[in-house]
Write a protein that binds this DNA or RNA. Structure first.
Length: 267
DNA sequence: ATGGTGGCTACGCCA
């Protein structure tokens, strides 16, 4: 009995509903986690996703910016939205689902991008990002007794050298600065998480999930970063079968700058 | 080389 979970920063779910539907028809994951839906809850295309079998939908939308959603073939219970940094942004939603007798807490995150200047004294957005990561360190994979955990999302940090096209050239670029990468690795260690993408594809193999809109030819330049992540509690790692990064989605009509990443588990 | 592109919304902000 398999379980599949996709994370995808969709950069406006209303604009990109056609490619979301195409993806769901083709890959048909059990659960789809979206970030940057960029709409309010009542504007979310719930009917279209329900028509494809995703009858269980939970939302944390926001006008114009951010926003996260989970659409699932399985019932979702005990849903929760945490306001990290207390600023009112819609950047987190979670719920529990059941799979093979396990109860699993699924977290879906959209971590702040952090602006351009990696210095919190002159760029408050970078400070917000660092504060958000600091607050995430309190999130434990074993927070609920008897409940496993999976954490996905656009974490906007590429923690390892081969999570970016050029480690040296990106050391002062927001998303790959040491204070961010060390901070994210602390979140993993202190929370007792396992980085499933790096379990499946260890360093030094390059992994990217995002390619900038600003490149003239994203595919030829291939200057990507691994900004999207799938983590789990240690008990899930033995069930991981594979991770699929659908790179071709970056070349679809009106693409997101992020591609869908899907984890496949098996009993 | 310090631009470039994209989305929301209605203008500048955010990524």
């Amino acid at each position: 009995m398999s379980l599949s979970i996709t994370t995808w920063n969709i950069n406006s779910v209303r604009l990109r509903l056609p490619i979301v539907e195409d993806f769901l028809k083709r890959v048909s994951p059990d659960i789809l986690c979206l970030q940057e839906i960029k709409c309010q809850n009542d504007q979310f295309p719930a009917d279209a996703l329900k028509a494809l079998g995703y009858e269980n939908i939970i939302l944390h939308g926001q006008k114009g910016y951010h926003g996260v959603a989970i659409a699932s073939r399985f019932p979702l219970t005990e849903d929760h939205r945490q306001d990290y940094c207390g600023v009112g942004d819609s950047r987190h939603i979670s719920a529990i689902f059941e799979w093979q007798g396990k109860r699993i807490r699924l977290h879906n995150f959209y971590v702040p991008a952090g602006g351009d200047e990696p210095d919190r004294t002159i760029n408050p957005k970078f400070g917000h990002k660092l504060d958000f990561i600091e607050e995430m360190k309190a999130l434990k994979a074993d927070a609920e007794p008897g409940v496993s955990a999976i954490l996905v999302g656009d974490l906007n940090i590429a923690p390892f050298e081969n999570d970016v096209w050029s480690h040296k050239q990106l050391l002062k670029i927001v998303s790959h600065t040491p204070v961010e990468t060390e901070g994210l690795l602390d979140v993993v260690r202190q929370g007792g998480w396992v980085d499933l993408m790096r379990q499946f594809t260890p360093e030094p193999e390059k992994i990217y999930t995002w390619w900038s809109y600003r490149a003239k030819d994203w595919e030829a330049a291939d200057r990507g970063r691994r900004l999207d992540h799938i983590w789990s509690s240690p008990d899930m790692t033995g069930h991981l079968k594979r991770i699929d990064i659908l790179k071709e989605a970056r070349g679809w009509e009106k693409p997101s700058d992020h591609v869908p990443v899907t984890a496949w588990f098996d009993i």
